[in-house]
Design a protein around this nucleic acid. Structure first.
Lengths: 224, 224
DNA sequence: GATAGTTTCATACAAGTGTTTGAAATGCAA
DNA sequence: TTGCATTTCAAACACTTGTATGAAACTATC
């Protein structure tokens, strides 16, 4: 159908504009102008502005979540149903960090859009994020299997802090660069992932690689 | 002057409305209705809507920053110019967490406002936050004095992660409660502060209390 | 008690918003 | 071609937004 052309023109124009200028500054008229389609096309194809935003965000975050679960599954299978705690954290924060940071984030509209969605918090996106709890529960379950000795609450705190470090790094990327005067290398995504993983593991197990130490074996020691 | 009455009526009505309903949903007309003043009063007393928001946020965050620096100063004086790293982190995250979390956060409009400002990110507030770097540099300097051996970048990462955990806990308070089904006690502010401090210290020094361990001495051991 | 300065007020303004409408154009099957 | 459904289009709609205006009310000083 020819309609798909209009639909996807709107989607990609909207993603680019939102990524560059934020949700507050971009109107439907901006979007349709950039996509070279009629103003009414947005409501015809998506129903409303909010549903357009929701569709953009859902498709991107579904992709990330899928990637996360794939990594988690692989780690659990490699460990015979019980993944190492560092592998779990890596599956949790790796996809998000790789998607939003690094050299690709300049070029990739998708990455810039997700960063924007993480900084500004508009209602349609907030609604979707609230449903993310079910997804996180799978990681909590994996952690429980990996560290059966730890108290439930501690596992949740560990999960929470890992996400905190990842998301805050994405959100405050510019400020950290400015604060550290460039000393913190925000382009070394893999290094950042390992930093976050190392701290997360250490928080839970009380051992592992400390910040700044080059992890020789690519993985922190597990406590159990 | 009688004008102060109108001014502060606007300020407190605005703070309450923003705290309850967010910046996106509250118009000047809502504010003046709640404050029982004329619509033009906002522009007369503050110049514009953005300057009103800025004034609200500035006064609250100045208070927090002052508190932080007081704690930092006290810690440095107690240690003869060189504060323990855990005391530094405690001065950094304690005031913010105490201000935004805990039982008072239900009652305190100021707390709810600051949480809102941390979730939504409107232009006037973003502008102010960007100037916060100078304030953070003072903590970076204190960390440098406390741990002269560590690489600069590691100190910044440690500072960054500490803020990450604090702010993410404030932002995602509800989600963490929901995810953990109430197991994570978000009302135990002091416990949360110690958790964040413990992880932050451990990340930098590779030692200390791990998550969930009751810190017997109220402070994690310092590495140096 | 007149004057000057400040503060309040009702009202209007100008611009921008997402959404709707109904007709025109297009694509496709019979 | 005819007929029917889908898609596009220009235009208007209905409403909200922050801000500006100029007169009125108030306050304090001389």
């Amino acid at each position: 159908m020819a309609s798909d052309q209009t639909r996807s023109a709107i989607l990609s124009a909207a993603e680019r504009l939102y990524a560059d200028r934020g949700f507050g500054d971009v109107t439907l008229r901006d979007i349709v102008a950039a996509a070279n389609v009629n103003l009414a096309a947005v409501n015809y194809h998506f129903g409303s502005k909010d549903e357009l935003i929701a569709e953009l965000f859902v498709s991107r975050s579904l992709a990330t979540n899928r990637e996360r679960l794939n990594e988690l599954k692989a780690a659990e299978e490699a460990g015979g149903g019980r993944a190492d705690i560092d592998a779990i954290f890596r599956a949790l924060v790796g996809p998000t960090l790789r998607g939003c940071l690094g050299p690709s984030s300049e070029g990739s509209t998708a990455a810039r859009f997700m960063i924007r969605a993480s900084i500004e918090s508009v209602p349609p996106i907030r609604r979707i994020k609230n449903r993310e709890v079910d997804h996180l529960r799978k990681f909590a379950a994996a952690m429980r299997r990996s560290l059966p000795g730890r108290a439930e609450a501690d596992l949740y705190w560990g999960l929470h802090f890992a996400l905190a470090m990842a998301h805050h790094t994405i959100r405050e990327r510019e400020r950290l660069t400015k604060l550290s005067e460039g000393l913190c290398d925000l382009d070394d995504v893999q290094g950042i992932v390992e930093r976050v993983v190392a701290v997360s593991v250490m928080a839970l197990t009380g051992s592992g690689t400390r910040i700044g130490e080059k992890p020789g074996s690519q993985r922190a020691r597990q406590g159990s």
